[in-house]
Design a binder for these strands. Sequence first.
RNA 1: GGCGGCGUGGCCGAGUGGUUCAGGCAGGGGCCUGCAAAGCCCUUUACGGCGGUUCGAUUCCGCCCGCCGCCUCCA
Length: 486
Amino acid sequence: MLRLHDTGTGEVRPLELRDEGRVSLYVCGPTVYDTPHLGHGRFALVFDVLRRYLEWRGLEVIYVSNITDIDDKIIARAASEHRSEAEVAQQFEASWWDAMDRLGVKRPSHTPHATAYVDQMIELVSELLGRGLAYVSPGGVYLSVEAVDGYGLLGHQSLDSLRSGARVEPDSSKRSPLDFALWKAAKPGEPSWDSPFGPGRPGWHTECVVMSLGLLGEDFDIHGGAIDLIFPHHENERAQAVALGRRFARHWVHNGWVEVGGEKMSKSLGNFTSLDDLLARTDARAYRLLVLRSHYRSPIEVTPRTVADAEEALARLDGIARRFGLAGGPPGGPRPATAPHGVSRMGRQRPDVPGAGTALEAAASYVERFVGHMDDDLDTPGALAGIFELARAANAAADAGDGTGAEILASTAQDLCSALGLELSPGSQEVDALSAGLAAERDQARARRDFQRADELREQLAELGWTVEDSQEGTRLRRSDRPGAS
RNA sequence: GGCGGCGUGGCCGAGUGGUUCAGGCAGGGGCCUGCAAAGCCCUUUACGGCGGUUCGAUUCCGCCCGCCGCCUCCA
């Protein structure tokens, strides 16, 4: 069974599911006030990989990821651009899903919006008030953190140390600096909802409690997000659930962030690259590969160098798709029906093929290693290493004339890639008439051993953006430029 | 101040108390090819510093140095 690092206990421990065969997963989604950057892309990819891997293992996954569509930053942007908060939220939610689609991130099972859950958040706040764990003050409704059992669990901080580190807000109406807003009283010009405690809007930490418990139920399996959400966001979510007397997440999973020159990429530092910028010049799969090449809890550097590196590595994997004619499905789309899913099925598919035995055994051991790495806290770098070895084994088998064995190994590699959400591509299949004509002419030149002419034609094709590969079927063209490259 | 993370060969990046090796990219040599491309084979450069534990540490412990993060909104 999968073992995962749990922020709550600080150790890697088995994922014990609430319901057998079914995983309930909640991941904090974006606040839609700006275009997503590489850091958002990373968390989306990390949890997409977790989800896909679990599904590949045959588990049902209910994946909930929210959209925060009301918040200070959205309000600020709407004000400065003289338009409504809803317009701002809609615009950036659209750009969020667009980026996710391009990254090949599978849509979550549910994508609840904060504004659709305001009534339930009001109920939650009322209940907390009723229990005497929250209080109303001029600024809104606050949770009394000190009344919550185990506050500081996720951040591994004692109440005292949190208190000593807390900054004092000058005009706060909070009883303790650690208390946080469940409900923010309306300020002039801000959107607000009516409530028993006056007009206002929900605090950020409340929506995830309501939506996760509402859609997944108590005691759900995994709550995820990026590492910077541990405190205060997740701590405060947990505090509310505990205060309500409800069981919350069994397992807390947090991914590391994207760094630039050793520093965290963030909006406030201004050192961010938007996903749009990256995807305009890079194959989205290369970014997925770049993310997978580091452990999900480690920081990653995204630089032209590391991106180019990932592109080259991807080209190597695509090479087997090209060589063995493996058709990649569209990112996020259905898997090819012919893709073997693990070796047991493959064995059933090919029981009578002579000479397949050794390759099947080898493939089985690669799959086993892959699973071993992935089950060990999602060791995707280790898992990838095996896939690259598998690719080499497939090529070597083909070089040695073992076509059947090579195909088994290659399709196993492809299957393992798909478990990571990485769809291999044989490359551009569409050759324009001009290029096709040049290729045909080059075949004729080579047939009559006019190599000077053949080389001239290769040059011409190179100028059109093609890499020429000779094969038994004749000149084969492969795009040498990258999407969007000029 | 409290809590936490990181420092591996040209670059990226795993991992482990001890003989062989992560893996990718780049470099060198070879095979294949008309020449290439792709592929395959071989190959070079490691574990921040100082102590300690140990028969033996990159791996465990302590200290130090350097870098980073959270404790405020943040993916």
